[in-house]
Nucleic acid binder design. Structure first.
Lengths: 268, 268
DNA sequence: GGGTGCGTTCCACAGTGCGAAACGCTACGT
DNA sequence: ACGTAGCGTTTCGCACTGTGGAACGCACCC
């Protein structure tokens, strides 16, 4: 056992992996606390693990995330989507300068799981929302895109949940006719847009965020793994112009995410 | 990405892990071929991985085996048992000088999945059989122990299979009454023993191996994960003496294997 | 008994990993 | 607006760790 020499740097690398298995998303500081390894060394280790595809970084806050192909416990389904989405959203943001989010269902709201908001030059505009921020189903571009494309059974379950809600922003769910029409329109266009009255977030936000967005489902064989969007200052550009210029990019991004997600699933 | 330095030794360690994920049981030579890393370096890496619990060695031939807690694809159920059994069988062999096997079901026969045969001083006596060697169900100590303790449904399935067989050594399965009696006796004793006519192996072996054995199921909550035995030269010791001296050790070993196997399963 | 294929050990050298300290950036508080 | 605290990142010189060719030991096979 301890007879021949062991390689310290490798031991420490594995220590980091084990720490990340217990806490799958961690900041540098947390990994440092967990492992006791000095931060400069950790940085080198994490760089190496990243190069080997064993960890990736969350765009939103730079936290380190263990890759699904390494993690021992089976990861949350949406974590795997987030991992696949991160590099694609990053590239998209480099290209079009406006940021994107990945949103996933979370009960009576959607929530942000990944975002390239910090990667845009104008990022101060987008600071309100972080990973985990709840977003309304019925009024948001992302919610509408999801509902329009998800399987009927799932849609019914979500709508039933919303109908029970007393919140003003969920009231629309009770108007079955208008709901249906909105979803049909969404499918016709091929992307989701905000309700004109919607100012971002969920559970009634104080002040509107002044943003606009278009949203596209991550459609994979009739299942929807989440939604990605493009968001921008309402003042800077009309929805029509954005669609004209970049809908195709959003579509490509969605396709790419789904493809790499499916590839990753195969290996497992 | 490549901006900051990466740690070569860690990269290579991960390379080895990936190689082992593709080929979960490999000799040093094979890993060398797969990775291109020189053998002395590999030895150090594998030592380190072993110390971290990421790989273990097969007793039988020293091959390296990726640990179930690291392997990306879900491992064969019995591979996990073998991994848990290896160190226990090793210790047992150190203690009592006679070797053991771990046997698992494999259709119309059982098969050796792990063994401490090479670890005993007298190991030339036991060289006939290796990992993968088939062993008869009805006549062997291990087969009888398994059948005596496995769930009834499974037992019926196996016996039905054997009744269809035309081989001489499976004929006993058609004698329902005697079969039942043998299993009852086995349960009464608490361990399996060979049929007096049995000379080892399966599918009719040329010459009897001159060994005797006692066998104990790896019983876990009504499921049987396999069987372990102790084998020795028939000439050296009677079954009674062996039971007297070491049945308790065999029982302890079985319990220990099941415990560590369950622990390992929890983590996953 | 010589040959072959592997695993393992040795050892001298060079490059690699190391971490304290300094730096930069953002968020907060006042 | 300014100061402070908390993190992530970069620097840099030193020590030591990882490296791999060569030699060894051991089974196994002609």
């Amino acid at each position: 056992m301890g007879g021949t020499k062991t390689i310290r740097s490798l031991e420490r690398g594995l220590t980091v992996l084990r720490a990340l298995q217990e806490q799958p998303i961690s900041s540098l500081r947390e990994i440092n606390r967990l492992t006791g390894i000095p931060k400069p060394t950790l940085l080198r280790i994490l760089h190496t693990l990243q190069g080997a595809g064993a960890v990736s970084r969350r765009l939103a806050d730079g936290h380190y995330r263990i890759s699904a192909t390494v993690s021992a416990r089976k990861p949350d389904r949406y974590d795997r989507v987030a991992e696949a989405a991160a590099p694609v959203l990053d590239r998209l943001c480099q290209k079009i300068s406006w940021p994107s989010d990945l949103m996933v269902p979370a009960g009576d709201h959607m929530e942000i799981r990944e975002t390239s908001r910090v990667r845009t030059p104008f990022y101060t505009v987008f600071l309100h929302d972080r990973v985990g921020t709840p977003v309304n189903w019925m009024l948001s571009a992302v919610g509408r895109a999801y509902l329009a494309y998800c399987p009927e059974k799932e849609r019914e379950r979500i709508l039933a949940l919303l109908r029970k809600s007393d919140l003003a922003e969920n009231r629309l769910a009770r108007d079955e006719k208008r709901t249906r029409q909105i979803l049909i329109e969404t499918r016709d266009k091929g992307y989701g847009t905000r309700d004109p009255t919607f100012g971002g977030g969920a559970y009634g936000r104080q002040s509107p965020d002044g943003l606009a967005g278009i949203a596209m489902p991550l459609l994979d064989n009739r299942r929807v793994h989440g939604v990605i969007n493009i968001i921008w200052s309402k003042a800077a550009k009309t929805v029509e112009d954005m669609v004209q210029d970049h809908l195709i990019d959003l579509q490509n991004a969605a396709a790419e995410i789904v493809a790499s997600f499916r590839h990753q699933s195969q290996t497992r």
